[in-house]
């Protein structure tokens, strides 16, 4: 059991990791074929995983409805929505558009239900940015003051009437405010981002090597 749960996965990880790492250094057709096969194998595993995931959702929610748990109505809605979407997809042969270019059943559900729902959820971000700005942005010291001032320049520098106002004050030949905004984004902001990015990339290499060598076994849980 220990062999199947720990030693075998570690062996597969080591051999697989080493093999795919070596294919990177080998330009042969076999290498690129192996990488393609690896990618296809993952797609197949992922598809099977998704199938079981959906099965899990159905079983879990049917169980809730059967037991009459608190909020079982939501589970019922989920089951009905899943069934209707599945049947529509079946009747539309999985195509979103008919041969005449019209929306099929599944296409209609996608366009007029899925799209607005997704857009609504995404738009919440705008509201939460505002509440986070009010709640969390505290100017406690000179560093946070610098951050606030920089952010203000970037935000205001992109507002049309602020630009007009700036031109009135600074004169028509002054460097446009948008140039300052670009400078901030492409210099101070970029320096910090690149530094973090380099750190992240090095971290990735270390984690990868540790995992392949079996030094880090935490992804298997501990013994």
């Amino acid at each position: 059991m220990v062999f199947l749960k720990r030693n075998l996965p570690l062996l597969i990880c080591f051999v697989g990791g080493l093999f795919f790492a070596l294919t990177f250094y080998s330009p042969t057709k076999f290498s690129s074929y192996s990488r393609d096969m690896g990618s296809n194998a993952f797609n197949i595993i992922s598809a099977i995983g998704t199938f079981f995931g959906i099965l899990y959702v159905i079983v879990y929610n049917v169980d809730r409805v059967r037991k009459g748990d608190k909020g079982f109505g939501f589970s019922l809605i989920l089951i009905v929505a899943l069934f209707v979407t599945f049947v529509s997809a079946l009747f539309s042969h999985g195509e979103y558009l008919t041969l005449e270019g019209q929306l099929s059943g599944i296409g209609w559900i996608f366009m007029y239900m899925y799209v607005p729902l997704q857009a609504t959820m995404f738009s919440l971000l705008g509201f939460f940015i505002a509440s986070a700005a009010y709640r969390a942005f505290r100017i406690k010291n000179y560093l946070s003051l610098i951050l606030f001032l920089t952010a203000t320049i970037v935000i205001l520098g992109r507002i049309p009437f602020v630009n007009d106002l700036y031109k009135l004050v600074a004169g028509q030949h002054a460097i446009p405010l948008s140039e300052y905004v670009s400078w901030i984004l492409q210099n101070p902001s970029m320096i910090a981002q690149r530094a973090i990015q380099i750190g992240i990339t090095l971290g990735m290499v270390v984690v990868s090597i540790k995992t392949i060598l079996g030094i880090d076994k935490s992804w298997l849980g501990k013994e």
Partner: peptide, 19 residues
């Protein structure tokens, strides 16, 4: 959001509780 992650995490969590 991924069934594959879920299976891995179930094992990790179970072992952590046992530990």
């Amino acid at each position: 959001r991924s069934p594959l992650n879920m299976v891995i995490c179930q094992e990790i969590t179970k072992e952590a509780y046992t530990r």
